[in-house]
């Protein structure tokens, strides 16, 4: 059983890892790359079923445990089903009632909710800046001062133009240097982790050692 549960999946990782590496290095395999890549969306597509199942199960359990919160779980269910059904039926009959419902749910529910949650960042970024301001460590002070200069630099006019120049310098020299150093390190980290996975040293994705 150990073979089917551990060894074979590991072997598959090794084989596919080597294949993936080879397809990047050997141009002649480019053709197979596209074919192999055609599997990825298929696999992704099926994984959505796990998500839906988990969400459903989670809310069912929650409804049992917290009856006072039941109504919210029901809202999640109904919205999931309505959105999915409207979209799937609407797809086959263009311009019908379901298409309209799906479009409206998308434009007047999904999009505004998304934009609003995103816009909460206006408040959160301010509170984060404020807290960094209160911390007296030199590191946070530095972060804040540089942030302040660049922020002013973006809206600078008149006598504040000096911030414009200063922020240009900050963006062009220290920022580029720091980000580049980080990127190189991250690139190496990604490579090392990928190699560990292919060599079978790293197995966390299979659940454990």
């Amino acid at each position: 059983m150990n073979f089917w549960k551990r060894r074979l999946p590991l072997a598959l990782t090794v084989i596919y890892g080597l294949a993936g590496f080879a397809m990047q290095i050997i141009p002649a395999l480019n053709g197979y790359r596209d074919i192999q890549n055609s599997w990825m969306p298929i696999l992704f597509g099926f994984s959505i079923a796990i998500g839906v199942a988990s969400l459903t199960k989670y809310h069912f359990t929650k409804m049992r445990r917290q009856p006072e919160e039941r109504v919210y779980s029901i809202i999640t269910f109904i919205s999931l089903v309505v959105m999915a059904v409207a979209g799937l039926i609407g797809m086959s009959q263009d311009g019908g009632v379901f298409t309209k419902l799906f479009d409206n749910l998308f434009s007047y529910v999904y999009v505004p909710l998304q934009a609003t949650i995103f816009s909460l960042l206006a408040f959160y970024i301010t509170s984060a800046a404020y807290r960094a301001f209160k911390v007296s460590e030199w590191i946070s002070t530095l972060l804040l001062v540089s942030g302040f200069i660049v922020m002013l630099g973006r809206v600078a006019f008149g006598p504040l133009m000096v911030f414009g120049k200063l922020s240009e310098w900050i963006m062009a020299v220290p920022t580029v240097a720091a980000m580049r150093g980080l990127l190189i390190g991250i690139g190496l980290g990604i490579m090392a982790t990928a190699i560990k996975i292919i060599l079978g040293i790293e197995r966390s994705y299979l659940g454990g050692e």
């Binding site: 990782t13 294949a19 080879a22 990825m40 696999l43 990604i190 490579m191 996975i197 299979l206």
Partner: peptide, 26 residues
């Protein structure tokens, strides 16, 4: 059984990432 698709996705993704990450990022 779900380990099979996961192994394939992770293995292929890792192998595929090595060369570009070395090239572009390093």
């Amino acid at each position: 059984l779900s380990r099979y698709p996961i192994s394939i996705v992770v293995g292929f993704g890792s192998g595929f990432a090595i060369a570009p990450s070395l090239n572009a990022r390093v």
